[in-house]
Design a protein around this nucleic acid. Structure first.
Lengths: 259, 259
DNA sequence: TCCAGATGTTCGCAATACGAACGAGAGTTC
DNA sequence: GAACTCTCGTTCGTATTGCGAACATCTGGA
């Protein structure tokens, strides 16, 4: 913990995060238990959030209000990438009829910042803000491949590679080999390492300095796309889309915060 | 301001909101100015947010980190509607080839909580969390039409109706007339009241008690859709989709926080 | 080089946020 | 019905957390 640390802000944010899919509505005491605060403290934070419009209550149960999206939206609106990328994703999807997404790297995860879905092929829904482990996703692979060597070393040392399916690459040596290949070919394909049946192919989006700062991908299901057809049919339009997004981002880069 | 109010939480959240499209990166002093805090206070909040991973800094400029999406994501993941609705939107878009969205009412705005875009037809990009004034949007119309009379009275008294285009309905009497029509026909069409050229058609999504708690819409451009063809070609699949979303929500309503 | 203005930082202390104790409600037992 | 126990939500005296006045540093202009 830093010296200059406002404990009340940290506690208040933990109260926001206490609401999730499993517990969308909570009593004051539930929140206190979940955040390990006293009931009096939880009450103060909840009442403050209600006053600010971020939380609603019927007098007993508390739940988040749509206004809390404003906080995440601040990030998206501060970043030109989603807005620039979305029309290109729309065009790509109209061409190949598979879901397309853009993500950035944050710690050990990729975080989705733009998406045009077609038909659902995963067990879980992907939305803006969804996070997956970088090591077993196609977009994560191109982003990791673009890290400077010291940052990649730090990543591998700091993050054990979790196994999600029998195919997940979990050894740092094997992953380095995969990333070498990604660097050589300029794109990544991941086959059922995140979820059984899920195939995806990704390309990097680079800034002016040539650093991969985001990734764009297409995802499909193993039942309708062979590895060969993905490379033949999906890769060319994907690479073209990445290039177009880059060109647009460079054209606007005098006013952007680029990841 | 309520008695039980944690000023530090409110201030910290204002710091998050200080970052936007116009100012994605800010110095400590910029943040202080923008939030009307002292530099010392702004510094403490920024350092706290950096420590929590929500803000990044190069030592001079601060910017939001993707992790801040987690705060908005808490709302989306706490609400079953987006997850239930998205597959239905995907199917609807595959059928009619126009962008489809779901939103909820929050104060005087509709807030987008799910979306499948096709081709962009508006000047601004719509993302999850985007807010538009309810009175001049098709989804806002069906949601306002579903308010109890006392709540609709309060809305009209508390919110002057802003004019966005020459066609925007800005008189409370005229809007009441529109809402009467919406109630009678069960859907709403809005023609270039939000933005020139934008046509959209919306249907309500109701909870078990019959209250319109969300809305689903299709949007198109005046250059490619007549009012007549929108009603003939888009309305039937839209209404069918609303019914399907409702059915699915009712099936899961034992575990949901429904708006 | 000097000065003024702007920026970032420190540390004594005031006021903000704290939680122990209280009040209220519900359920159980005698 | 009374008494007791447990859980929940709330209050208010005060401790400690967050405060900002003052200091330190940097930058640009004369």
């Amino acid at each position: 913990m830093a010296e200059e640390y406002v404990q009340s802000l940290a506690r208040g944010l933990a109260v926001i995060r206490a609401f999730d899919a499993a517990t969308p509505e909570l009593t004051l005491s539930d929140v206190a238990r979940k955040t390990e605060l006293t009931r009096a403290a939880a009450r103060r934070f909840l009442l403050t959030l209600v006053d600010l419009g971020y939380v609603r209550t019927d007098g007993r149960l508390f739940s988040l209000s749509p206004r809390v999206l404003e906080l995440g939206y601040a990030y998206l609106s501060s970043l030109s990438l989603p807005e620039v990328a979305l029309p290109h994703l729309e065009r790509l999807v109209a061409e190949v009829h598979e879901s397309a997404s853009v993500s950035v790297l944050d710690d050990a995860d990729v975080v989705y910042v733009a998406r045009v879905p077609t038909t659902r092929i995963m067990r879980v829904t992907i939305a803006i803000g969804t996070r997956f482990p970088a090591h077993c996703t196609s977009m994560g692979r191109v982003l990791l491949a673009g890290l400077p060597p010291d940052e990649l070393d730090a990543f591998l040392e700091g993050h054990p590679l979790e196994r999600l399916t029998p195919r997940t690459v979990t050894s740092p040596v094997a992953l380095r080999g995969e990333l070498d290949r990604v660097r050589a070919q300029g794109w990544a394909m991941v086959d059922q390492e995140l979820e059984e049946g899920l195939r995806s192919i990704a390309a990097p989006i680079r800034n002016r300095a040539g650093r991969a700062v985001a990734a764009v991908n297409l995802s499909s299901h193993a039942s309708r796309t062979t590895l060969e057809s993905a490379r033949r049919d999906l890769l060319p339009p994907l690479l073209a889309t990445a290039a177009r997004i880059e060109a647009d981002l460079h054209a606007t880069s005098s006013r952007e915060a680029m990841p």
